[in-house]
């Protein structure tokens, strides 16, 4: 049998297909290395330390270099509570613990929205709740 390589963009998993379909949609979660969290206008990182942070798209991204997002934190005390995603949600899901959506608005460059960084999409039955938390839609 022929062997398909990763060079073929179509040799992808369901999660990667999910990224292709929903990676720019409201509720898409990304696990972004801090070095890629530079705000396109402020030109500063979300966190200067090594590591990574989860971010969620707060509306559909339809173009432009700047993507409005909100970060999620396990240590923040002031943001809106956001529950862990169900264990069987998606194989690439990294939203595994209860946390909070940080109040501070942020933006990422489109380069951060890569399939490598893609975690998952907010579960369908929780999209409306996420909209309420974020005060959108």
């Amino acid at each position: 049998m022929a062997r398909y390589t990763r060079s073929s963009r179509m040799r992808i998993t369901l999660e990667e297909l999910g990224h292709a379909l929903f990676g720019h949609a409201f509720g898409a979660w990304y696990w972004v290395p801090n070095r890629q969290t530079v705000h396109p206008k402020l030109l500063t990182r979300w966190d200067p330390e090594p590591g990574d942070h989860p971010f969620v798209l707060i509306r559909d991204h339809t173009g432009g270099p700047s993507v409005p997002v909100r970060a999620r934190s396990l240590s923040d005390r002031t943001g809106a509570p956001h529950g862990a995603h169900p264990p069987d949600h998606a194989r690439t899901c990294k939203i595994r613990d209860d946390g909070r959506i940080v109040r501070r608005a942020w933006a990422l460059s489109t380069e951060a929205l890569s399939s490598r960084n893609f975690s998952c999409r907010e579960p369908d039955d929780r999209l409306d709740a996420l909209r309420r938390i974020l005060g959108v839609g």
Partner: peptide, 21 residues
């Protein structure tokens, strides 16, 4: 995507990639 998830969700990584290819 719901249909794809229903159909592909039970397959392993390799067959899933193969089916999408």
């Amino acid at each position: 995507f719901d249909a794809l998830r229903d159909i592909l969700g039970g397959l392993g990584d390799g067959p899933q990639r193969e089916a999408i290819a």
